[in-house]
Design a protein around this nucleic acid. Sequence first.
DNA 1: TTAGCGATGCAAACCGATTTGCCTCAATTT
DNA 2: AAATTGAGGCAAATCGGTTTGCATCGCTAA
Lengths: 344, 344
Amino acid sequence: MPHPSRPTIRDVAVAAGVSPTTVSHALNGKGVVRQETELRIREVAERIGYRPSAIARGLRSSRLGLIGLIMRPFSTLDSFVPEGVDYFLRIAGAASLTAMEHGYSLMMVDDPTKAGSPVSALAADVYIVTEPFEDDHVLTMLDRERLPFVTLGADPSRPDNFHSIDILAEAQTIEMLSHLTESGGRTLALVTGTDRTEWNFTAQRTYREWCERHGQAPLLMAIPEAEGEQAGDIALDHFFANDAPTRPDAIYCLTGRHASGVAAAAIARGISVPEQLLVAAGSGSVQNLTQRPTVTAFDLRPDLIAQRAVEYAICLVEGKPLPEAMQAPPAVLYVRESTLRSVN
Amino acid sequence: MPHPSRPTIRDVAVAAGVSPTTVSHALNGKGVVRQETELRIREVAERIGYRPSAIARGLRSSRLGLIGLIMRPFSTLDSFVPEGVDYFLRIAGAASLTAMEHGYSLMMVDDPTKAGSPVSALAADVYIVTEPFEDDHVLTMLDRERLPFVTLGADPSRPDNFHSIDILAEAQTIEMLSHLTESGGRTLALVTGTDRTEWNFTAQRTYREWCERHGQAPLLMAIPEAEGEQAGDIALDHFFANDAPTRPDAIYCLTGRHASGVAAAAIARGISVPEQLLVAAGSGSVQNLTQRPTVTAFDLRPDLIAQRAVEYAICLVEGKPLPEAMQAPPAVLYVRESTLRSVN
DNA sequence: TTAGCGATGCAAACCGATTTGCCTCAATTT
DNA sequence: AAATTGAGGCAAATCGGTTTGCATCGCTAA
């Protein structure tokens, strides 16, 4: 016994002179209980500080009111200073808040397939998996265990197998490439991360298609997300090497920190931004706002995304129908100094 | 029934031709079971995909293996773009990871005293409360409900009532004030947040004592944490007003975003940093690294803090003794451009 | 007068595990 | 041969709620 145990429903029943059944009915408004009795029971419960045990209740209904949030990119990082800090914090925060509003709690789970992962990691009623990888074994396991889940972005290898929220990566890529062109970009490069996610894959595919339509040779590069700002030098070494056949005059980095690093590295090498090189990010991060020049970026609205994900997840638990198309809210493009050439 | 229910211990028992008791014993290595029987049971369990229900198990032991993380500053914010993004994300991430390593899961809970908060919010075995406020009602409630918890920083009004981890705010304040003095600062100002936390209070008190010892009139100011970088203009308007009796030549801001704003605002007004004004932060944030000049700041090592907090929390659950002094790891001072005057 | 009915409330079963106490059987001791 | 012992296993109680099915009572309708 960890603590001098809290009062149970039986204690309330005794104190109110009724049966546990009646207490349960009274407090949950289930059966038919005389008004007067109900009031008395409520009063007694309040007085002795009774609170139903979520666990006991969960045993019957096999529901704890818990939503599990599995952030895939977390699992692959050693330290917890991941790429897209803001993005993930805002997801977690907003998900937590939305869950609360619907009477659920949020549990952060780190890859439940890992050996020695706690049983409680599988105790959630439903899961939200952000950015699943290709052939993601977490999805495979959840599916096998018959645990319901929604994903934020599809598993690239099984795009139609599960309930996934469309992250609109294709539309974003096109919008950004168009913006860069309109801003004076003639030769556009793309820098993605190396995680095998829909986010990276779709941007690459869309970019290639765009290049084909526009008769440009693709300048494409994948740099590990974890490189963060270091990616700037890596990308510039590559794109501006002496033997590079063509050099880009615009670089679109999917992650904010890559973009931040690219802008900084360019300036350090005497390449002016935005005059000689346009830089933009697919997912804004704090430093894109504070650095000079400020960097054009999408705000993916992680808080809205998380809110929707939680609402879909709850539909799944409660057996309500899911909407036909589960989509992220459209991303908002914030045009900043890094793609604003003073002269047109 | 949400799903075509998963196999129970009874299913395993039937399939293996033994009783549920024996299955339990075999899988948990508790009672005495013949080697051969145990192997058979394990095999059967594996084959039919049996996993014990965390809920049922929790009912008996009144433990779910769940740690609740309550971030107080979250509860007061409208949107989830709080001050100290990095700090909190790293706390949450590291706590989650450490919890997993010890066989626990981490639940993020947003003020469980709020009306309509889910019962599951009280289902954790133990809680970690970051930065409690003065007379924090969350602590009062947890205490009343006999739920064990540790706090990160004390409740200023009840510093000795609960298990709290010393955040070493006094030592940090002194170290930073000394550093500023050594860096050439003659008149030091302090900017804290307005949350009624130990972090803010202790810095103020320590600063006042320091001023007294050094015969300086305190230049003290509290600006809401949520102002973020905006605090820069607010602070400069105040400290550099025309009728200001004395002007500081060094400003120590507790939060990273305040410091970032102060540095930017100073430069915008033609006050050079660090030549005319030293700027430093008590808790580093990303922008302190990326802005120009880079800003001197403490790294509070939130990941280590979270790790310790989780370990203490687990001690509490498992009835192990807590260490005498629960302390955060010493903060590391990163001296950057904002306090490095080229000439001595 | 009696069958019918709605309003109340309770006893007992149930959810799925763990834990306690006891039984059986064979081997060992006396 | 009887008593003791330990290994191996099972039935039943337990955790704290929810849910099902039934009993009772008073009142109305036939």
